[in-house]
Design a protein around this nucleic acid. Structure first.
Length: 196
DNA sequence: CCCTGATTCGC
DNA sequence: GCGAATCAGG
């Protein structure tokens, strides 16, 4: 596969959306995440705000200059954080309109598969405490503001006006942020597991 | 060990 | 230009 204009477009879009290289690669098909990353760099759009890696890169080369003599200076000024084309300001939630290219399948299921409230049962007091703490500075997103990378942990009563979603950065793979992942997947405490 | 992006370098 | 190999880090 080669980088056709179309594919590059998808790449740009997804990368801009904050999708990880592996996901993009999977979507595009025929390429590895390395290829995607390589392309991203070649295109000039590399650093995103955050994600999985930092972008300090100041003296790494020095540290690993032993095995492989890499003569490379890293001109990485990154002076100011300019305002990007602001992909989705307010009314373009996760499931916005997509040209339905050869890629793109399912980002947000629908709006229904909401996480189950974890009746505070046998959950670590610590985990709960952490959640409470986190909810303090949660982003309080509404259903339509959720994206692939916002914690979808519901807070409050859906029938009330006081209902929102955590919205903090999700844990890799999971639909929730770290704190909520903690209380979400940790069940199995009451039910003594029988045999194994 | 899983994942992430970053970089290098032979092609 | 491309991307596997490698690196660095969460």
């Amino acid at each position: 596969m080669s980088w056709t204009d179309e594919r590059v477009e998808i790449l740009k879009k997804m990368w801009g959306e904050g999708q990880s290289a592996s996901v993009i690669a999977k979507e595009l098909g025929g390429v590895t995440r390395n290829a995607v990353i390589g392309k991203v760099h070649r295109l000039g759009l590399s650093n995103r705000s955050s994600g999985g890696t930092k972008a300090p890169a100041a003296d790494k080369a020095t540290a690993k200059a032993a095995p492989k003599p890499k003569a490379a200076a890293k001109p990485k000024p990154a002076p100011k954080k300019a305002a990007e084309p602001a992909p989705k300001p307010a009314d373009a939630p996760a499931a916005e309109a997509k040209p339905v290219s050869p890629a793109r399948k399912a980002i947000i299921p629908a709006g229904q598969p909401l996480p189950p409230q974890p009746s505070a049962n046998e959950i670590s007091p610590e985990a709960l405490a952490k959640v409470s703490e986190v909810e303090k500075d949660a982003k309080r997103l509404n259903l339509m503001e959720l994206t692939e990378k916002t914690c979808k942990w519901p807070v409050g009563d859906p029938a009330t006006d006081d209902f929102w979603f955590c919205g903090l950065p999700v844990q890799q793979g999971k639909p929730y942020c770290e704190a909520h992942v903690g209380v979400a997947f940790q069940p199995m405490s009451s039910r003594r597991d029988r045999k194994r």
